[in-house]
Amino acid sequence: MDFRSLFTRKSKSSSIATQRLQLILTQDRFEVSEDSMKKLQIELTEVLAKYFEFTMNSVSMSIKREGNSYVLMADFPYSKTNKIR
């Protein structure tokens, strides 16, 4: 348990801002709509679900700037119990 959470009653507005910003910038950098992103997310999960046991919508995607290019990152939470089919 985080020591700090004992003293903070509600989530800080700065962390809400940072989370919103990450999402906004991912969409801006992709130059695609929220709908297409959701679709891509679902399809990616479906492909991986053929090999691993996943709960739908568990994937999160972002685009990070690395020097002059962008790197697309998709995070799939994976645990040992998600055995390979």
Binding site: S14, A17, T18
Partner: peptide, 19 residues
């Protein structure tokens, strides 16, 4: 404001813009 959690911190700005 950053201390109070009401402003995005320097490190968060840098993390996002990465320049």
């Amino acid at each position: 404001l950053v201390r109070k959690g009401n402003m995005i911190s320097k490190n968060d700005v840098l993390d996002i813009l990465n320049i």
